[in-house]
C-alpha cells in the first residue's frame, strides 16, 4: 500500500511539471492558434535561470531565501515571452500555419544555442535546495520533501489558473478572444494586448515548470526538446487549447510514465505515443478539446 503511495506521489510530481508546460502550450494555442515549437526551450530557459540563481550566484544562502529565488526562472521566461511575441510572432498570425511552425522552429534552434552560449555545455545544478529540504519517511523509505513541494506548487498553480481564467475579468477577455478573435476585437478588446498577455502567461507557466524541476534534476542542453515532445503528448490526449485537458492529460501521462519507469522502461515513450494515437483515433479533438 505504501509502495503504491510512493508511486502515486511520483506520478503527481511528473504530472505537476507536465501540467505547467503543457498547460502553457495549450493556453497559447487556445488563444492565439499558434503551436509554439520553442515552448520547450522556454521551459529549459526557466530551469537554467533558476539553476544559475540558486546554484551559482547565491549558492550557500539559507534555504528559505533559495525558495524565494525559485520563481526567478518563471519570471525570466515570462519576460522573454513578452519580448518575443510582438517582435517575432506577430507578423505571422495572418500567414499560413506552415510559416508559424517554421518561425518557432527557427526560434527553437536559436534559443537552444543561446543557452549553450550563456551557460556552457555542462549541466547546471541547483541541488542545494533539494538536499537542504530533507525528507519524510514513508513506510521506512525516505521520500524527499522537495518532491512534495513541487506537487503542492503544481496544485496551487492549477487552482490559481482556474480562478484566473474563470473568475477574473481578464479571464473573460481571454476566453472571448479565444472563441472569436474578430468579434472580441469588434467589441473593443485590444487583441494585440491579449495576445502578449496570453503568450507571457504561457511562457511563465513553462518557465515555472522548468524552475520547479531543476533542483531535483539539473538543467541540461536538450531538456527543452524532450519536454516539448512530452507536452505534445499531454495536449494531444487532453485536447489542444483546453486547460482542463492539459490537467487530465498531465495526470494520465504522469501515471503512465511512473508505471513505465517501474515496469516497462524500454518502451515507456512508445507506450505514451501509442496512447496519444489511440485517443486521437477515438476522439480527434482530444478528451476535452473542442472539435
Amino acid at each position: 500500500m505504501d509502495f503504491l503511495l510512493i508511486h502515486l506521489l511520483n506520478s503527481l510530481l511528473f504530472a505537476s511539471v507536465l501540467f505547467l508546460t503543457a498547460g502553457g502550450l495549450s493556453l497559447i494555442y487556445g488563444v492565439m492558434r499558434i503551436v509554439n515549437l520553442a515552448h520547450g526551450n522556454l521551459y529549459a530557459f526557466g530551469a537554467y535561470v533558476t539553476a544559475w540563481a540558486i546554484g551559482g550566484v547565491l549558492a550557500g544562502a539559507p534555504t528559505p531565501l533559495l525558495y524565494l529565488l525559485l520563481p526567478a526562472g518563471a519570471v525570466a521566461a515570462a519576460l522573454l515571452g513578452a519580448a518575443l511575441e510582438p517582435t517575432l510572432l506577430r507578423p505571422f498570425y495572418k500567414r499560413a500555419e506552415e510559416y508559424q511552425l517554421l518561425v518557432t522552429f527557427g526560434l527553437l534552434m536559436i534559443l537552444e544555442d543561446l543557452m549553450r552560449l550563456l551557460w556552457g555545455p555542462y549541466p547546471l545544478s541547483a541541488s542545494a535546495l533539494w538536499e537542504n529540504s530533507g525528507s519524510v519517511t514513508i513506510s521506512g523509505n525516505p521520500y524527499p520533501n522537495y518532491n512534495l513541494v513541487v506537487i503542492a506548487i503544481g496544485l496551487v498553480a492549477a487552482v490559481f489558473l482556474w480562478a484566473f481564467v474563470y473568475k477574473t475579468k481578464f479571464g473573460v477577455v481571454l476566453r472571448a478572444t479565444s472563441q472569436d478573435m474578430r468579434m472580441a476585437s469588434a467589441l473593443g478588446i485590444d487583441v494585440n494586448r491579449v495576445y502578449v498577455q496570453a503568450f507571457t502567461l504561457g511562457c511563465f507557466m513553462a518557465g515555472l515548470g522548468g524552475a520547479m524541476i531543476v533542483p531535483r534534476d539539473s538543467a541540461v542542453l536538450g531538456m527543452g526538446v524532450d519536454a516539448l515532445v512530452l507536452a505534445f503528448i499531454v495536449v494531444v490526449i487532453g485536447g489542444l487549447g483546453s486547460l482542463e485537458g492539459a490537467l487530465a492529460g498531465a495526470l494520465i501521462v504522469g501515471v503512465v510514465r511512473e508505471l513505465g519507469i517501474t515496469f516497462f522502461a524500454e518502451i515507456e515513450l512508445a507506450v505514451l505515443y501509442l496512447i496519444a494515437v489511440l485517443v486521437l483515433l477515438a476522439r480527434p479533438a482530444g478528451l476535452f478539446g473542442r472539435p
Binding site: 511552425l101 515532445v229 505534445f232 494531444v236 505515443y273
Partner: peptide
C-alpha cells in the same frame, strides 16, 4: 491522413518519436 493542418503535423511528429525512442532504447 485522417487529420489535416496542425493535428497532422503533431501526429506525424509524435509517431516519428516512437521510432526514435525505440532505436534509442533497444
Amino acid at each position: 491522413v485522417r487529420y489535416t493542418r496542425i493535428f497532422f503535423s503533431i501526429l506525424t511528429l509524435a509517431l516519428s518519436q516512437v521510432l526514435w525512442s525505440l532505436a534509442f532504447k533497444f
